[in-house]
Nucleic acid binder design. Sequence first.
DNA 1: TCAGCGCCGGGAAAATTTCACGAGCGTGGC
DNA 2: GCCACGCTCGTGAAATTTTCCCGGCGCTGA
Lengths: 220, 220
Amino acid sequence: MIASARTIMLVDDHAVVREGYRSMLQKQPGLCVVAEASDGAEAYRLYKETGPDLVIMDLSMPGIGGIEAIRRIRQWDKRAKVLVFTMHQNAAFAVQAIRAGASGYVTKTSPPEALVHAVMDALSGKIAISPDIDHELALSHLAGETAAADLLTAREFEVLRMLLAERTTDEIASALHISPKTVANLHSLIKDKLGVGSDIELVRLALRQGILTQIDLSEP
Amino acid sequence: MIASARTIMLVDDHAVVREGYRSMLQKQPGLCVVAEASDGAEAYRLYKETGPDLVIMDLSMPGIGGIEAIRRIRQWDKRAKVLVFTMHQNAAFAVQAIRAGASGYVTKTSPPEALVHAVMDALSGKIAISPDIDHELALSHLAGETAAADLLTAREFEVLRMLLAERTTDEIASALHISPKTVANLHSLIKDKLGVGSDIELVRLALRQGILTQIDLSEP
DNA sequence: TCAGCGCCGGGAAAATTTCACGAGCGTGGC
DNA sequence: GCCACGCTCGTGAAATTTTCCCGGCGCTGA
């Protein structure tokens, strides 16, 4: 009763992590890893080439982030399924990822079965969210806290992420293929929406909300 | 053989902490707490009024910070002895405090006897440094890492601290009694010295070096 | 005494931030 | 269909900030 194998693409900038995915997934019958990418741009290119049934995507990667990659892939193929698998135990990222078109969001701290389970859910059209993220979402909802992710549009959040990653206005502009002037406008708009007056407050807000974590500081 | 009692002033913005100091110190014969202040400005004022033999000073306080307070006190009385007692287990702060004229630097995680011991050392003219800070200093020295504290002058470091505390240029200017223009000049100079191009990089550098900690984010 | 350095700030050029405005474009309701 | 709405992107000009260069002042060590 094995149908034709489902194809999967892995996207993560650490080869060892991709190896981990692979070893976990190949224990499942009916799954086949057909492509691997180490950054968002490569993921987009390889998706167009191989058209897998499912993409498993990390978020923090060099160049364009995972969320932007999801948006591009979904723009090219509206039926694309992308499952986010990331270290970020943060509701803000989950909201943005789902909004960008992700089919699920699983944190790397989840038990191994959770990924496999989420893969199956995603393949069958369901949306899978990690319990810890569910909890975060519920909490922030109950607290009535207006998270950055709720105030910002997808584009704005993307720019915020790149700003926090110490990228210059021009770098962001060329990465997103828009004018530096637009990035400056978004930068200003973001600060306005979040109610902060300076970049310093912006970083601190991002830290409080977990958009930027202490760990990110040592990464590129 | 008890000489005349040595007078001490306590400076900490939390009353309960001052109470702790007091209870520890009064077990020592020959010591007498003659004044208490809850911020840097009050400390300066009370020092001029009471002229204690030793000041025990916290660093993170509202208004002007502890380091600025040390500078002012030492400017008024070159022979003033100030012992820093703080939560900051960070070499950068120790370097700056000593540079500002502190007679010692003890962290709040140190065992109770350490404070008493440091008080005695300070009173007898010795400079007392916590073992953990000694270790930090040794480490960063061995690593050859150029810490922010080594590159910046006392004034620059002070301004950096206040910038990171989300204070505006004008607020800093009036707190330090200098022109906003000078603050802007210092801000620019700091970024230049630390080799960062934006405020965002500045905050991230400060976080990496422990000048700003995650904990500070929720405090005023 | 004098050179060096930190500190303070003015002035002007350069860069950035902000604001106002408008054109596409996709989405959802009628 | 068709309209209204919000998001995106961009321009241009004004307002503000950042940066650079300058000189004066006070302290310190040779």
